[in-house]
Design a protein around this nucleic acid. Structure first.
Lengths: 118, 118
DNA sequence: CGGTATCCGGCCAGATACTG
DNA sequence: CAGTATCTGGCCGGATACCG
């Protein structure tokens, strides 16, 4: 599994395809899962780590920051000890929910097709 | 814009999230555009190059091969000179069309939001 | 708890040349 | 026309250590 993630803001030769634009935002290595788990409510940093044990701290931070930059996710810092940070979907982020759910449904329906012996 | 593409078949720690599974298939650097342009019919190799002038021959081949491996795209070779190869959506590929169109629609609707001065 | 900072190997992807 | 082959740089992303 090599999950390099795209992101080509600026899109030098991007032909401005809207599909690419959308994929640029949600297609990141972990963004799909992160967004999916944000659908049912606010999450804290370490909650994500429990949900996705294989994501590193670094990658989690980076992916969340990108989603934040794109206005998809809201990061709320509580000034207290111990620190607490909550992540949630923005209004813009919520407009992506149907797509995420659709992709989830598709994945569930067709994953089994790949299991077939080649 | 750095467009590394994912693909993590095998998914050692993938948590088996269906969303990730779907993104693994359509989230490739160029797959969104390629699939989108296949919606309205069969395309030849060089037609894609005209549509996406910035994609290299190598990448086009690789992306199409992956889509083919995943059973999304059908590659049909015509034994003739000069050679002719046609690409089209498979039945499985066609089940992705609603998602692609949905992403296109989202991209069109919200791209403008990014134009706003930060 | 929720992060940075830094180092570094590996793979992605571009460029270029060649082919059936 | 529709590819393959090869080389290479650069970024992705893991590991580790440290911090407010």
């Amino acid at each position: 599994m090599n999950i390099r993630k795209p992101r080509f803001r600026g899109d030098p030769a991007g032909e401005g395809c809207p599909v690419e634009y959308t994929l640029d935002i949600i297609g990141g290595k972990w963004k799909g899962v992160l967004l999916y788990h944000l659908i049912d409510g606010t999450k804290r940093f370490n909650e994500f780590r429990k949900i996705c044990p294989s994501i590193t701290q670094r990658m989690l931070t980076l992916q969340l920051r990108e989603l934040e930059e794109d206005g998809i996710v809201c990061r709320e810092v509580f000034q207290q000890v111990p620190p607490k940070v909550e992540y949630s979907l923005t209004d813009l982020g919520r407009t992506l929910v149907p797509i995420i759910l659709h992709m989830k449904q598709w994945g569930e329906s067709f994953r089994k097709c790949e299991q077939l012996p080649k």
